[in-house]
């Protein structure tokens, strides 16, 4: 991952910007929205236990500490996947998000919550996302010569 950031540094003009967007390693909650209230059912499981996201953040900090980039702005936001049922969400994830799993216990919890008579209901996967802007610095002295 650090090598990828070095490659991006080579592709940018001096002083150019890198904008990095990736999920954080905080839990990706699965919840049920009933009208204006929300109820946590569990969280998304991933084969690598969110390790990729942790490594992406670590690599970014490493590229900064090596002198390739300067971190100038960072924020976090939620990216939501909204479905009318847990089955729709599972179907979408099977096609688009390899290695992710909604446990049977979590799916059952969603289904139980969605038996509510509230007409305005939704199954939501809420992913915390990190976004940062970095400025490309002149090549570190050790690598520029």
């Amino acid at each position: 991952m650090v090598d990828a950031l070095k490659q991006i540094h080579r592709l940018l003009r001096p002083g150019g910007r890198l904008v990095d967007i990736h999920p954080t390693d905080d839990t990706h909650d699965i919840l049920v929205r009933l009208g204006s209230s929300e109820h946590l059912a569990g969280w998304l499981r991933e084969a690598n236990d969110y390790l990729d996201y942790r490594q992406a953040t670590d690599a970014l900090h490493q590229a900064v500490s090596l002198g390739y980039f300067k971190l100038t702005r960072q924020r976090e936001f939620f990216y939501e996947y909204c479905a009318d049922s847990v089955d729709s969400l599972k179907e979408y994830l099977a096609e688009n998000w390899k290695g992710s799993t909604v446990d049977d216990r979590v799916a059952a919890s969603v289904e139980e919550l969605m038996r509510s008579l509230e007409p305005n209901q939704m199954c939501v996967l809420r992913v915390p996302v990190f976004i940062a802007r970095l400025k490309a610095l002149p090549l570190p002295a050790a690598e520029s010569g």
Binding site: I8, R13, R17, L18, I21, H22, Y53
Partner: peptide, 12 residues
């Protein structure tokens, strides 16, 4: 040609 901005989107 160099780029002014790179966007690395959900790629890790």
């Amino acid at each position: 040609y160099p780029f002014d901005t790179a966007v690395l989107s959900w790629s890790f």
